[in-house]
Nucleic acid binder design. Sequence first.
DNA 1: AATATTAAGTAAATCGATTTAGTAAACATA
DNA 2: TATGTTTACTAAATCGATTTACTTAATATT
Lengths: 344, 344
Amino acid sequence: MKNKRYSIKDIAAANGVSVTTVSFVLNGKAQEKKISEAVTNKILKYAKKINYKPNHTAQSLRTGKSKIIVFMVEDISNYFFAKLARIMEDIAYKKGYKVLFCSHENNDEKSIDLIDLFKDTQIDGYIIIPSPGIKSKIEELIEEGIPVILFDRYFPELDTNYVVVNNKEASYNATRHLIDNKFKNIGFILTDVEQTQMIDRLEGYKEAIFEAGLEENIIKISRQDIHLTDGAKKSSIQGFLEKTPDLDALYFATNYLALSGLKVLNENFPDYINKLGIITFDDLDFFEIYRPSISAVSQPFTEIAQTLMSLMLSLLKNDIKSSPITQIKLKTNLIIRSSSHRDN
Amino acid sequence: MKNKRYSIKDIAAANGVSVTTVSFVLNGKAQEKKISEAVTNKILKYAKKINYKPNHTAQSLRTGKSKIIVFMVEDISNYFFAKLARIMEDIAYKKGYKVLFCSHENNDEKSIDLIDLFKDTQIDGYIIIPSPGIKSKIEELIEEGIPVILFDRYFPELDTNYVVVNNKEASYNATRHLIDNKFKNIGFILTDVEQTQMIDRLEGYKEAIFEAGLEENIIKISRQDIHLTDGAKKSSIQGFLEKTPDLDALYFATNYLALSGLKVLNENFPDYINKLGIITFDDLDFFEIYRPSISAVSQPFTEIAQTLMSLMLSLLKNDIKSSPITQIKLKTNLIIRSSSHRDN
DNA sequence: AATATTAAGTAAATCGATTTAGTAAACATA
DNA sequence: TATGTTTACTAAATCGATTTACTTAATATT
């Protein structure tokens, strides 16, 4: 039962032909290369019999293609990214690709380390949520002729492929929704990163607030605090809530901010939570069963994953030089639940 | 700025030495192979100057080692697995390994397909949550001399490395805790898979119930339903709850069962939820902020991930034949929150 | 001075594929 | 019959490392 690994050489020897012939046959080039049907069938049959699997590493070395793509996100354990990863995995494997996931925590140094690390390995393509300061690293990849797709956020000055959602519009609508429900003092909680997704969400909020003649209440949580302790995040939010106790609604820019926010509210202002209007960017499973159930801007997982993968696959298939730059903005979904609804 | 990739050959040519010498130097074998310090330094300096990175694929082909390990779970988007993945990723990258994550949804066919797929690629080691029927596939891997570690569950008849938690004891304690809080009619909700983790959790429950002279109430959710629709899961649980409205506590065997259960309760028995004792295996972020906050058996992520990785690294370092079989059972933590507490 | 040892390196095989540039025989054409 | 084409296949180079088995010159030993 010792499963010796067979090579193309073994097949050649066993059938009295050259490795060239075997390679042609196994790559479906028999006709093109004028290999007789008799020989073709013999080889095919034998390969099947011994359950031959080509050595991927050798193929990779020779062809320069690894059939591996990298999917780099902020934190793979975050629901949003994990969910995307799950879907992308399925699509990729079906198409004969493997996916390497990794997390950079929005830290430039870590991003760069990871990308450098991957440069040793043949990587056929990159799907990247960029951390704020890696524009030149992304340019470097592109210059090397490797397919790159940014997503979630992008660099406006850089002409790259990207897939994002309509952050500004979605944010405007979410804020508008609170306003329509008679909330007058709406706090927007975001992080201090200067990246497109945040900026656009902030702009959407501002626009809606301005249009309604209301006052802005912006809470910026320091980026450093985000990935360090949960405590730091909480205490920032708590500090803010204590200073502005007249807020009647909170709008969180991401799901992890909402989680921290809910914790703070729960621990310190348990009664407040039911009167407050609450809405957040990124839907979570449990927002549906929380009480009050939490309204959320939901990003279309499946659509994002499919768009990313099909764009990547087309970049991989066609010559990168001849491929047009593709920039896609997908629509989000505002899911209205009880936390943002008011009857009066 | 065209970043041509340098090879060992380029270094050799530029320095008037052979590739052999370069290889020796770059692999730290200069002294052992009696390469003069002058030449050694010249090569090292040049390699650094051009930022030489060895071609990983070529190394892999020659050495038979890929520095890639596979981490195969039920569903990478599940919080428990995603969290583990995040930690393992960090450890692995620090040690020069990359991790390929994949999900089999406890489906044997899918598991086998995935393993076969990986066989083409050089994979140095596998960390696997086994689906029920892949014992022989696991044996196959082991016979080929590839390091394999099972975790979360295992095959009792198979003498392999594994890392699990003390399911039975934890389950006993969780049930005991409900009993101590005067709950008398405790329902245990689990899936119908016949795998060690489930069986042990069931046994722990039974033992505690028997010891207290109470009656068993076991709800088995069909495995097929689990990964299909959320609806199916919910309707099973709902059906059960309607049939036995006299339950005063629920104990869920996994976090996804608890999520479905809470949904059902919320939609159909909103008042019931506060009187009910609730406890679940696997802690989730939001169980802490749910109201009532949900008690849970918490698995030690960091410890599990570290144990898995350090075991794997030691298997990879030492000769697999001389390595002893290691079987580790880690301790869980019972986190008591308001959902399982009763004052009377 | 003859031999043994060490120092400092290199040529070439190898891993397992793909691919280019052939060749020999069979057949067709003028 | 001589030449051109086509068929059916193969030798050898190549991808970029690692590693074994030398080689040559210098130094040490008896």
